[in-house]
């Protein structure tokens, strides 16, 4: 039994699910944020595995763009977390509930 691209795809699917579970269950904005990064990296793994299986380069090129976009998201996200923390002294999203209904 060789470890082919399908294994990587499955690993990626697992990572993606872990990421979603993290976003849904954790309440610290930073941890949720890390979970989102995990989801994006699971996508990267999928792209690379699929690209390898297909013998096609565009999957690997896609990863470049995903990485850059993820970095931009990190910067904006961290800035928002810091802004919230400075104002409220917490990064717990459950305490961000002035609005509801």
């Amino acid at each position: 039994m060789t470890v082919g691209p399908a294994w990587y795809m499955l690993l990626a699917a697992g990572l993606f699910v872990i990421g979603i579970a993290g976003v849904l269950t954790r309440r610290n904005a930073l941890i949720m944020f890390m979970s989102i990064e995990l989801m994006l990296n699971a996508v990267n793994l999928t792209f690379i595995a699929a690209g390898t299986a297909l013998g096609d380069l565009s999957g690997q090129v896609a990863v470049f763009f995903v990485l850059v976009v993820a970095a931009a998201e990190v910067v904006v996200g961290l800035a928002i977390v810091v802004a919230v923390y400075r104002r409220r002294g917490t990064a717990n999203v459950d305490e961000l509930s002035e609005m509801s209904g």
């Binding site: 989801m39 996508v43 802004a83 999203v93």
Partner: peptide
Amino acid sequence: EAAMKYFLLGSVASAIFLYGVALLYA
């Protein structure tokens, strides 16, 4: 608060969308 919620949920949506692209590609 609005920005934080928009950011977290929006990023999750983007990631889901992107995973769709990856699976479609595969």
